[in-house]
């Protein structure tokens, strides 16, 4: 999908803190214009206008698009100054957003397949919208969500409404104890795995997928400036040795494209 990219002022209509580390922002286009088609796995570039130390936009993955309410959901982890400011945005605040950006998850030929969506930490964000898109295609996805502890598991109710949920926590406070890769969800037979989370987790999931011979896509989050394929800062080296931009060639890659 190659929707025209837009730069939109968006108004915060809801900001729900999720634990101490995360915030869920819901935004509507300030001028009331309808949100464009956004694919699962695409991201947006958000301007941070009121932080003294933040100069560049912050790339944030699309958590969900509520077309009925014309609302965009962004799940934000307070990783630094910029995201802390975003997560603190008050209802009514207007934020400038560029969207939709990047190549999302490959779900064109997914009908009839059994899929597992694996997320860790804030990496669960794009999987909610992906689950919704899969549901529209008649697929009930299995979610495997990992976190350090129960309090770090995000949006469990929303995920449960969309598919079957498995969880892993490192301290065993929710679901199975341990890392996602040891979760019994992997005993199931899947045709495709979609994964988003910390790099070590994605690499471990990719290794499991390879071993089982299951197709697997991962979503990367390299540091970027423009988000448009111009600055060439967010590159990832592909199998063929060439650097490609995560912002335009990704953020989603099939693991067979990567030298993992």
């Amino acid at each position: 999908m190659n929707s025209k990219k837009l730069m939109l002022d968006m108004t915060v209509t809801e900001n729900t803190p999720l634990g101490s580390l995360y915030g869920l922002l819901k935004l509507v286009p300030t001028d009331g214009s309808p949100l464009p088609d956004i694919a699962a796995g695409q991201f947006v570039q958000v301007e941070v206008s009121d932080s003294k130390t933040t100069y560049l936009r912050r790339p944030i993955s699309v958590n969900y698009v509520d077309y009925k309410e014309n609302r965009l959901w962004l799940l934000i982890r307070k990783a630094g100054e910029g995201t802390r400011h975003l997560a603190a945005a008050e209802v009514g605040k207007v934020i400038n957003v560029i969207l939709p950006l990047g190549r999302g998850f490959g779900i064109d030929n997914i009908s009839g397949k059994k899929v597992l969506l694996v997320g860790g930490g804030v990496g669960v964000a794009p999987l909610l919208y992906l689950g919704e898109k899969l549901k529209e295609k008649g697929i009930t996805p299995d979610f495997l969500l990992g976190a350090r502890s129960e309090k770090d598991l995000l949006q469990l109710d929303d995920f449960a409404k969309t598919g079957n949920v498995f969880t892993s926590t490192e301290d065993g406070s929710h679901g199975e104890k341990g890392l996602v890769t040891t979760n019994s969800a992997f005993d199931g037979a899947y045709d495709k795995i979609f994964c988003c989370g910390p790099m070590p987790m994605m690499k471990a999931v990719a290794a499991v997928a390879r071993k089982k011979g299951v197709e697997c896509e991962v979503s990367l989050e390299n540091k970027m400036a423009c988000g448009l394929g111009a600055c060439l800062c967010c590159v990832e080296k592909k199998n063929d040795g060439h650097n490609v931009c995560v912002c335009t060639d990704g953020p989603v890659f099939n693991i067979n494209e990567l030298p993992w």
Partner: peptide, 23 residues
């Protein structure tokens, strides 16, 4: 030219550093 290895960018006060290396 493939340019330099990642990471190639760092945000700094009112600016940024880049080390793309003419990719």
């Amino acid at each position: 030219r493939e340019g330099n290895d990642y990471p190639r960018m760092a945000e700094t006060p009112s600016g940024m550093l880049n080390a793309v290396g003419l990719q």
